[in-house]
Design a protein around this nucleic acid. Structure first.
Length: 469
RNA sequence: GCUCCCUUCGUCUAGUGGUCUAGGACACCACCCUCUCACGGUGGGUACGCGGAUUCGAAUUCCGCAGGGAGCGCCA
C-alpha cells in the first residue's frame, strides 16, 4: 500500500497592483484544494520583475488574503530572495548541456522576429547559439554579454492531462529555446516558476488558463531537472459583464479590498467566486466548511465566466441575513467607524444588525442607515411639515407618556402601545408610525418601529419624542 | 500570421447517449403579505452557435465552420 503524497498547492501572484478578484479566485481554488486534502497551501510572491514590483502591492496582496481568510501554511516566499538558487540550477543545466549561453544581440532577435512575422510564421528563436555547445566552435570573447537559454527538445510532443481540460498535447517543434537567465544575471518567470514548484514540492498547480501555453515549456524544464511533473489545473478566466477582459472600465470592481470598502462580507465574495466556474450540482449557498469539504477539480468549467455583480449582491444580502451576527458585526463595525462613529456611544452592533439585516444589500448601506442610532438627526423641515401634523400631535404626546411608563422595553409591549394609541385616536397604525419614525430616525425608512424603539433605548426615545409634544 | 483553448436561458450553471416538451440560481415582470424600506410566498417568459457524421436515439460522441479568448518578450 502506498501512502498518498501530501497535497501541496501554491498561489503565486506578482506584486504589481492590488489583489485582483480573478487572482483571488485562483488563490481560493488552490486554498480549498489543499484544505480538502489536508494538504499545504503556500504563498509565493513572484517579484522578479524589479521594475514593476512594489512593497505596497505585496501588502495589498497580504491584506486581501487576510480579509478573505485565505490563510497559507508556508510563506510568503519571495523569489527575489532566491536568486542564488535559480542561478545555481541554471549553472547545473549548463554543465549538463541542457542549457546554453546565447550571445545573440537584442537587435538580431528583433530582426529575426520581424522576418518571421513577415513570413507569417510564429516568431521564435532559431537556435543559432546552440553551435557553441560544440567545443569545436569558438565562443565569443569573455566579456560579450550573454543570456542562458534552455535547450528545448526538437521533436516529440509534450502531453499532459490537465485536471480541467483533459489531455493536452503540444508539439515540441512549436517551442523554442527560451531564456532562463537574462544578460544581467536575473532569472526569468518560466524558470523561477519551475525551480520553485520543484523545490517547494508542489503537487497541484492551479492557475489561470492564460498559462496553458507556458505549461509545455515548464514541463520540459522540469523533465530536464529530473523533477516530478505536478498535476495542472488551468482554470478559465473571469470576464467583465461586457464579456471582455475584467477591468474597471465596465464598472466592475476588480480589487478585493475594494469589495470590503463597498460593504461585502468576505463569505459572500468567497461563495460568489467559488461558484464562478465551479459547481456542486445545483447548490448555490456554501458555508466555509462546505467549500472546504466539497471543492474538487472535477467540476470546474472550461469556459470563461462573466462577472455578475447582482448575484454577488444577492449572496451578500443572503449572508447578512443568515451569518452569525457576531461575524457580521466585525465588518459592520468597521463601516460605522469609517463614518466617524464612536461605537461606544450606541447600541450593541449585533442588536442593530439583527433588525437591519433584512433591508441591507451591503454593510456600507446598513451603516449609513444606522447612523441615527448614534447621532441625533434632526428631521428635515419638509418631513416635519408633512408628517408631524397638528392632529397627530396628541397621539405622539400619548405615546411619549406611555413609553415613559413602560418598564419592559421589548417589541411586544411597545407594539401593543403603538396599536392602542393609534386606535384611541382613530388612526391607522401607519398614520402614527410614519411620524414617529421621522422623529426618531430623521427619515422615513427604518426597521419596524417597535424594534427601532427598542434598540434605540428608552432614554433616547423619550428625549426625541419630548421635542414634539 | 502561427499554436493552443473555449462555445446550454441576459448572467452563473445542472446535464457525462434515452428519465430533457433541457433543471436550479441571479436579474426581470405580475400578484399576495405589509407601519416605511425591505424580507418572504406564488406564478411567468427566455438557452443547447451553425453544418455534417455515428446511432434505433445526441445538449451529451466524431469532423468541419463560425465566433470568442490566450500565448508567441532579456513581462509575469
Amino acid at each position: 500500500m502506498t501512502t498518498a503524497k501530501e497535497v501541496r498547492t501554491r498561489f503565486a501572484p506578482s506584486p504589481t497592483g492590488y489583489l485582483h478578484v480573478g487572482s483571488a479566485r485562483t488563490a481560493l481554488y488552490s486554498y480549498l484544494y489543499a484544505r480538502k486534502h489536508k494538504g499545504i497551501f503556500i504563498l509565493r510572491i513572484e517579484d522578479t520583475d524589479l521594475e514593476r514590483s512594489t512593497q505596497e502591492s505585496v501588502q495589498a496582496i497580504l491584506d486581501g488574503m487576510e480579509w478573505l481568510g485565505l490563510n497559507y501554511d508556508e510563506g510568503p516566499f519571495y523569489q527575489t530572495h532566491r536568486f542564488d538558487r535559480y542561478k545555481a540550477v541554471a549553472q547545473e543545466l549548463l554543465a549538463q548541456k541542457k542549457a546554453y549561453k546565447c550571445y545573440c544581440s537584442k537587435e538580431r532577435l528583433e530582426e529575426l522576429r520581424n522576418q518571421q512575422m513577415a513570413n507569417k510564421a510564429k516568431p521564435r528563436y532559431d537556435g543559432l547559439c546552440r553551435k557553441f555547445m560544440n567545443l569545436s566552435e569558438k565562443s565569443p570573447a569573455e566579456n560579450t554579454p550573454f543570456v542562458i537559454r534552455f535547450l528545448n527538445p526538437d521533436d516529440g510532443e509534450v502531453i499532459f492531462d490537465d485536471a480541467v481540460h483533459g489531455k493536452t498535447v503540444f508539439r515540441n517543434n512549436e517551442l523554442d529555446d527560451l531564456i532562463i537567465i537574462r544578460s544581467d544575471g536575473s532569472p526569468t518567470y518560466n524558470f523561477t516558476v519551475v525551480v520553485d514548484d520543484w523545490e517547494m514540492k508542489i503537487t497541484h498547480v492551479i492557475r489561470g488558463d492564460d498559462h496553458l501555453n507556458n505549461t509545455p515549456r515548464q514541463i520540459n524544464i522540469l523533465k530536464a531537472l529530473g523533477a516530478d511533473i505536478p498535476v495542472y489545473a488551468h482554470i478559465p478566466m473571469i470576464l467583465g459583464s461586457d464579456g471582455k477582459k475584467l477591468s474597471k472600465r465596465d464598472g466592475t470592481t476588480v480589487s478585493v479590498m475594494q469589495y470590503k470598502e463597498e460593504g461585502y462580507l468576505p463569505h459572500a465574495l468567497l461563495n460568489y467566486l467559488v461558484r464562478l466556474g465551479w459547481s456542486h450540482g445545483d447548490q448555490e449557498i456554501f458555508t466555509l466548511q462546505e467549500m472546504e469539504s466539497l471543492f474538487n477539480l472535477d467540476h470546474i468549467n472550461k469556459a470563461a465566466a462573466s462577472f455578475n455583480t447582482s448575484k454577488l449582491i444577492w449572496l451578500n444580502q443572503h449572508f447578512i441575513k443568515t451569518d452569525a451576527l457576531s461575524d457580521t458585526a466585525r465588518e459592520f463595525g468597521w463601516h460605522l467607524s469609517k463614518l466617524g462613529i464612536d461605537l461606544s456611544t450606541g447600541p450593541l452592533l449585533t442588536d442593530i444588525i439583527d433588525i437591519q439585516k433584512e433591508r441591507a444589500k451591503t454593510l456600507k448601506e446598513m451603516a449609513e442607515r444606522s447612523v441615527f442610532f448614534y447621532r441625533d438627526i434632526q428631521p428635515p423641515e419638509a418631513l416635519i411639515q408633512k408628517h408631524i401634523t397638528e392632529n397627530i400631535k396628541p397621539a405622539i404626546k400619548d405615546l411619549h407618556g406611555e413609553l415613559e411608563k413602560l418598564d419592559d422595553f421589548s417589541d411586544e409591549p411597545i407594539h401593543a402601545i403603538l396599536n392602542s394609541i393609534a386606535e384611541k385616536h382613530g388612526l391607522k397604525l401607519g398614520d402614527l408610525a410614519q411620524p414617529v419614525r421621522v422623529i426618531l430616525t430623521g427619515g422615513t425608512v427604518s426597521p419596524p418601529l417597535q424594534s427601532t424603539i427598542r434598540v434605540l433605548g428608552k432614554i433616547p426615545v423619550i428625549q426625541k419624542l419630548s421635542k414634539f409634544v
